[in-house]
Write a protein that binds this DNA or RNA. Sequence first.
DNA 1: GACCAGGCACATC
DNA 2: GATGTGCATGGT
Length: 228
Amino acid sequence: MSTRTSQTLKAFYDAMFEAFGPQRWWPAKSPTEVIIGAILTQNTAWRNVERAIANLAAAKTLDWRRLHEMTVEELAELVRPAGTYKVKARRLKSFVEWLWDRYQGDLKRMFNTSSDALREQLLSVSGIGRETADAILLYAGGVPSFVVDAYTARILYRHGLVDDSADYDEIKDLFESNLPEDAAYFNEYHALLVQVGKLHCRPCPRCEGCPLERFEHEDLTRRSSRDE
DNA sequence: GACCAGGCACATC
DNA sequence: GATGTGCATGGT
């Protein structure tokens, strides 16, 4: 199928890829590290997540058994640089406890579950919302589940592909129903959107030089303090 | 000092 | 169902 939306989304990808090349996401050494990073990066700059992960690595706790044995207070001290550290320690713990109860602490068993069922299960864990669940599925499990984040919503909104009330599932479905169901493609696409977002599509945007600049969009740079 | 960052749960209406 | 708020470190 080749609707207009589908063509536009593919053209976005091509333009971003041409500008930035492969992003090689997720920036982690193992599925375990992906999952920990996905929880730690919630509403947090990646730079700070790296510090927290470095602390965990230094303490040799990038390991589900060790994480299972630690207290939430010990964990909190290690993840402190990532911000909201008490909350995040609790969320990591709730995932670990769940992984232990349900899959004996074994990620391979977890990913052996059918992806739709696993997504529902992940969403039932306190601290794992839609973006985190999809990041785990895609970047730790290689499941073609499109990840939506604040940049994604902002970029699509500014290009008129969704309105500002579009929710997570609506945006996710827009990608998944208009692109080939390919985990490698979804992987690269989301990473490229984040790169465009970081460089050009923050709350106060900088459209100059953006690889999507040539596509129809609303240039808000001159009215960052607009009130509608 | 203000604002932001690869969200989420929970309270309230 | 929609909207508001707390969480918190570190960079710009």
